[in-house]
């Protein structure tokens, strides 16, 4: 009699055995959807990074020096926070799905909203003052 293919546990990578130790493999569609959501957040982080780099490189004659550096540092920092948050959220969602728990609250969404609002307010103020 052949073995039930679902009962055997194929070997997993070292990192995923350590970081995703408990629970059962979730529906593969959910795992891939989680990966795509992570990638969407990483692209958001990369957009903030590119924005911060561009402010410093292109806007030399738009904003005076201290303001430009502050805007650039804030924008790049938001990109950093979002990229770390994206990885943490990916891990937490994957763990919740393995254990059958409800998905965690996304803390990076209020972070993104707040950062976007602050960035726009700063740019409006700087353009009006100029």
């Amino acid at each position: 009699m052949s073995q039930d293919p679902l009962s055997e546990d194929p070997p997993r990578g070292r990192l995923s055995s350590r970081l995703l130790a408990h629970g059962q493999e979730p529906d593969p569609r959910f795992t891939l959807a989680n990966e795509r959501t992570f990638l969407a957040w990483i692209r958001t982080a990369l957009a903030f990074l590119a924005g911060g780099v561009a402010v410093e490189a292109f806007a030399a004659d738009v904003f005076a020096d201290p303001y430009r550096t502050v805007v650039s540092v804030l924008t790049i920092s938001v990109g950093l926070l979002i990229s770390v948050g994206a990885a943490m959220r990916w891990l937490n969602v994957e763990r919740s799905m393995r254990l059958g728990h409800p998905l965690p609250m996304p803390l990076i969404i209020p972070l993104l909203s707040f950062a976007s609002g602050v960035a726009m307010a700063v740019v409006i103020v700087l353009v009006v003052l100029d």
């Binding site: 795992t31 891939l32 990074l49 920092s77 950093l80 990229s83 990885a87």
Partner: peptide, 21 residues
């Protein structure tokens, strides 16, 4: 019906963004 979560890819991508930032 079984896809192992790609932990190394996620960690390396995040690390790349953090180092660049």
């Amino acid at each position: 019906e079984r896809v192992e979560a790609d932990v190394p890819a996620v960690l390396v991508t995040t690390l790349a963004v953090v180092v660049l930032g």
